[in-house]
């Protein structure tokens, strides 16, 4: 099998990397969480504003890292807006990798799933630890 340079770094990834969707801070964020990939030092934070109907009104990310981790975070933010928390419970790693579209090797999946992992941790914390949620939301302000 021959692999070309364009297989991974196609327009889909590079467009999101160069012109990311919602990179920066989320106005009126209600939840935020950040993490870093200890292997490569990439860091990413995710901020979302939940509506009264438990629907994600806006999702923003910020961070530094490789094209895959940053593009995937942009793709993630675009995909989860408008979704309810219930809908996001069904959203799995496989779905995230499908959204990225390009095949990732095991080592690059860590990059592609960094934002997804942060989202899942944030949602878990907000559901299971009300105190943590308050802390997270006060940090976001």
């Amino acid at each position: 099998m021959l692999v070309s340079l364009d297989d991974l770094y196609n327009d889909h990834i590079l467009d999101h990397f160069e012109s990311p969707y919602h990179k920066g801070h989320c106005p009126g964020a209600t939840c935020q969480h950040s993490d870093r990939n200890p292997i490569c030092g990439d860091q990413l934070s995710l901020e979302v504003r939940l509506g009264d109907d438990q629907r994600i009104e806006e999702a923003w990310f910020d961070g530094k890292g490789c094209a895959i981790s940053q593009a995937a975070a942009s793709i993630l933010c675009e995909a989860i807006e408008g979704k309810t928390l219930e809908q996001l419970k069904e959203f799995g790693a496989r779905d995230m990798l499908d959204l990225i579209k390009v095949p990732l090797t095991a080592s690059r999946q860590k990059c592609g799933l960094l934002g997804f992992k942060i989202l899942k941790t944030m949602l878990y914390a907000s559901e299971h630890q009300p105190a943590a949620e308050e802390m997270a939301s006060s940090n976001a302000r």
């Binding site: 340079l5 991974l8 490569c40 030092g41 895959i68 990059c111």
Partner: peptide, 19 residues
Amino acid sequence: HPHDLSDLLDRQGVAIRAG
């Protein structure tokens, strides 16, 4: 980014380390 560089080099057979 060094990770992207390492990945693109790998696609050309060149094994380096990034991180």
